[in-house]
Amino acid sequence: MDITLIVDFFPKLISYLHITLLILVAAVAIGLVIGVVIALIRIYKVPGFNQLALIYISFMRGTPILIQLFLIYFGLPTLLALVHIDVSRANPLLFVAITYGLSCGASFAEIIRGAVNGVEKGQTEAAYSIGMNEKQMMVRIILPQALVMAFPNFANSVIGSLKDTSLAFTIGVMDMVGRGNTLIASSLHALEVYITLSIIYYGVVICLEKGFSLSEKKLQRFEGSLAVDTK
C-alpha cells in the first residue's frame, strides 16, 4: 500500500463530493414532500390511497436500493415511452434523485407518522378546546411538535441515504465513487482509492452528525433537557 497515493487521490475524489451532496439534497427534498403526503394519507386513512401508501412503503422497505435504482433507471423510460416521452438521454442523476427520493419518502413517511401519533392526545384536545379546526390543529400544534420529535430518526435516515448514494455510480453517475472507479482503472490501486473514499464519507458523516445534533438541541429546547433560562 502506498500512502502517498491516498494524499494524491484525496483532492481528486473530494472534488466530486458536491455530486454526492447534490444527490442527497435532492433525495431529502423529494423525500420530505413525499413523506409528509404519505404520512398524512396514512394518518387520515384516506380510502384507497392508504392501501397504495402501505404497498409503497413495504415495497421500498423490502427491496434493496440497488434493485430500486435499476428498476427506475430501466423502468421509468419504458413507462414514459408509452406516453411518448423520451427520457433515454436524460442525465442519470435524475434517476438517482428519483430513486433516492422515493426511498427517503418511504422512511420519512413512517417516521413522521410515528411522531404524529406520538404527540400527546392532550395537545389535540387543547387545540380543539380553543376552537381550532382540524387543519389548524394539525399545522399549528401537531406537526411542529411531531417534526421535532422525528428529528433524530430523520437525521439517521439522512445519514443512511448519504451512504446509499455510493451506489449511484452503477448507473453511470460520476460521483466520488464513479470517479474512484476511473482512478482504479488508471492507477490499479483499488485499496488506496477505497481508503480515501472511506475517509471522505466518514468525514462527511461526522460533520452531518455534528450539525444534526446541534440543530436538535436548538429545536428541542422546549422539550426540557436543555431548557434555557429566560428572563
Binding site: 400527546e120 392532550g122 395537545q123 384536545e125 387543547a126 387545540a127 378546546s129 380553543i130 376552537g131 381550532m132 389548524q136 399549528r140 400544534i141 411542529p144 411538535q145 421535532v148 422546549f222 422539550e223 429566560t230
Partner: peptide
C-alpha cells in the same frame, strides 16, 4: 367555550405568551 385541563395540556412548543395568543390570532 374554553377548557382548563387536569394535565394542563399547554402547547409544549410555544412559550407562555404564545400559548395565550394562539387562539386569539388563529381562531379569533
Amino acid at each position: 367555550t374554553a377548557m382548563v385541563f387536569q394535565q394542563y395540556n399547554l402547547f409544549k412548543h410555544k412559550t407562555v405568551i404564545e400559548n395565550v395568543m394562539e387562539g386569539l390570532i388563529i381562531v379569533q
